[in-house]
């Protein structure tokens, strides 16, 4: 069972711009993906966001971003990724720093309330 499970469940981790969060969430909800975890993170990307501090242009060393974690069954991976890609593309015209999506296999999922495991618990 555990082998079967790990191939059918995926964890999608998307790093997006802070300001894309609302659009991405709306797109995901429209696509039927309603279970997501969102965290505020910061890191180094290729983009250099400029801010102004007392008249001086400064480039913060860490750029704030949003990290989405979405656990899905394999057949929903494309739907989810497409929703994220189209939502971000529609709004920033392909600028550097739009972010990335990572997809990894997911070993096991347990729903705390019922103790269910595997694809049904997603």
């Amino acid at each position: 069972m555990s082998i079967l499970t790990s191939t059918t469940m995926k964890l999608i981790i998307a790093i997006i711009r802070e300001n894309q969060l609302d659009q991405v969430r709306e797109a995901l909800i429209d696509a039927g993906i309603t279970r997501i975890t969102v965290s505020h993170v910061s890191g180094h990307g290729r983009s250099k966001t400029e801010e102004i501090y007392r008249g001086q242009v400064v480039i913060p060393n860490l750029v704030p971003n949003i990290r989405l974690e979405i656990a899905v069954n394999a057949e929903f991976v494309d739907t989810t990724c497409n929703a994220i890609i189209s939502a971000t593309k529609a709004n920033d015209g392909g600028l550097i720093g739009s972010g990335k999506i990572f997809i990894t296999p997911l070993e096991e999922v347990i729903r705390l309330r019922t103790g269910e495991r595997g694809p049904d618990a997603i």
Binding site: N19, Q23, S42, Y53, L62
Partner: peptide, 25 residues
């Protein structure tokens, strides 16, 4: 404009952020 509303007034019109400007967390 849509871009300003999405990015937020702070960044779009003022080039700043309210919290954690130099070391965002």
């Amino acid at each position: 404009n849509a871009e300003a509303e999405m990015r937020g007034l702070d960044n779009y019109y003022h080039g700043e952020r309210g919290y954690g400007m130099t070391n965002p967390s």
